[in-house]
Amino acid sequence: MAVTLPPGLSQQASRKGAAQNGLARSRAGGRILRTATAAALAVWFVLPLLPLGLWVFADRWSYPAPLPQHWGLDNVESALARGAATGFAGSLGLGLMVSAVATPLGVLAARSLAFHPSRWSAAVSALLFAPLALPAFVAVFGLNVLLVRLQVPSTAGVVLVLTAYALPYTTYVMRLAYAAHHIGFEEEACTLGATRGQVLFRVQLPLIAPALARAAFLAFLVGWTDYLVTLLVGGGSLVTVPLLVASAASGTGNDGIVAVLSLIALVPPLALLLLMGMTGRRHRGGRT
């Protein structure tokens, strides 16, 4: 085990009184340090979102005014006129489709890796993690020709590529979950005469539900956040929020629209997270 206890224990123990004092003092100092660090981190994570929040409501914000000169909802209107709703639906559909394919495939792969180690296992996990090492644009340069030649509908092509990029995450999350849960539970249920439905719904699902939700969420994010694959493989047939953002950001005077579209991009993942947090808490509460 790499966790080595600090050397010279006896020495410290002999100065226990002094150490206790020091510990108390360092705690007070530590709290200030911790609070300051936490505040700095909070600023770090939120600062870039600040201009978005302002631009959303800025009907007029000429340079160098530090704050918008006219507040209003013109940008929301323009963003809607630009197809924000279509893009939102496209993004949502894409995220859900990727999630719907990548999660079950990841579950299966993770079960195979966790419970059936074989001489193939190492190769299988190496392959499933390979997408992490291949930049998406490279895969797309190659696949684009292949997919069009095979007449794969472009939306299906996007889902296919993004699913491959989501699989490392779903497999990894589920692999961790299965490492913690013992297959013995299922086998025991089997021997005790549980039907397959009972094993699935009473034993397997409750055990892996939180991990399943995490995996599905990560896969959703892969679809939700993608730009390049949707652009190049989708060929314009699939309009998503990132595509609208890029197209708006390439024009002048669209900052407010970019801000609206950006905040739209933030809503569903946050809603999902909240939902997961709430149901997770309820589950935990129920069990204890």
Binding site: L108, A109, S112, H116, L128, A130, L146, L160
Partner: peptide, 20 residues
């Protein structure tokens, strides 16, 4: 056993292998 991983493996092979 190992067959459970087949769908994922096929899909990734197409994308990563085919793409490369």
């Amino acid at each position: 056993g190992v067959l459970l991983a087949v769908p994922a493996v096929v899909l990734v092979t197409v994308v990563v292998g085919g793409g490369s």
